[in-house]
Amino acid sequence: MSMTVLTVDDSRTMREMLRLALTEAGYRVLQAEDGLHGLEVLASETPEVIVTDINMPRMDGFGFIEEVRSDPLHRGVPILVLTTESDAEKKNRARMAGATGWIVKPFNPVKLVDAIRRVAA
């Protein structure tokens, strides 16, 4: 049975690229276009991993992670943040919010799968 990954990113291009890489690797993909939408998806299904962008409208990555971590049902779900910046500040902030790990954009599909494997079964 394949694992389900929830991808949260406001860029259609990025969502498509993630979906391509993840389905090739055998994962089942759920998509959301910002933090609020991500929460809506979580309301009906719990994925095994979440991959989220940081800069998004309505609710950004930090807000989203904080919300997920404060929800008893989902706080154990590993969350990987996508970041274009090797900016330590952003990464730290994400971790403070509760991110499990990170993936640098533009992402290498192999590294994406690798990161997922490192945080989920």
Binding site: S11, T13, K105, P106
Partner: peptide
């Protein structure tokens, strides 16, 4: 975000 997004995809 608009420019950030374009940059991100362009990098990919």
């Amino acid at each position: 975000r608009a420019v950030h997004s374009i940059k991100g995809g362009a990098g990919a």
